[in-house]
Amino acid sequence: MTKLTFPVEASHIMMFARSIGDTNPVYYDADAAKKTEAGGIIAPPSFAQSVAQFNPDYFLRPKPGQAWFGSGKTATGLTEKSTSSGGLHAEQHFEFHRHIKPGDVLTVESMPGKAWEKESKRAGILKFRESITEYRDQNGELVITARSVGVTTERPVSQS
């Protein structure tokens, strides 16, 4: 499967912490972070998912010269309507062997896991797909093991 290189930068951690509304100095202030239990700047727990930034083929990022499925002149940039209402994120699990810190250069490898189906009243047939992702550091040590479950719905989720 895909193997990505994820260089972890302090500015990326700071921007990520801002985007989740977390003002904890352990995510941006090196001096303050030194005095915490973490001993230095670390990344917030769910930061690992930002590896998407380093996937050159990531399908949820618009790319120059390619049609994008979001709106422009028309409500979608695609000429053929997709038969699916798109994928949603169902579950996300992280196991931390240690926490990510600036300067880490992670090698990230994903493997497909189980797949299953379920019938739901709110969205029709649900197709679940699991993937397991390992984040290893520059010394080959395992930093995070992640398990993600995505779901494709037959129709948009009803809001009742």
């Binding site: 989740i20 977390d22 915490t36 670390i42 917030p44 769910s46 996300q92 931390f96 926490h99």
Partner: peptide, 19 residues
């Protein structure tokens, strides 16, 4: 995660999973 780390402290989480 912010609420959890505000409770348990920095860098102490070993597992975090959600649905």
């Amino acid at each position: 995660g912010k609420a959890v780390t505000n409770y348990v402290g920095d860098g102490t989480l070993t597992k975090f999973g959600v649905r």
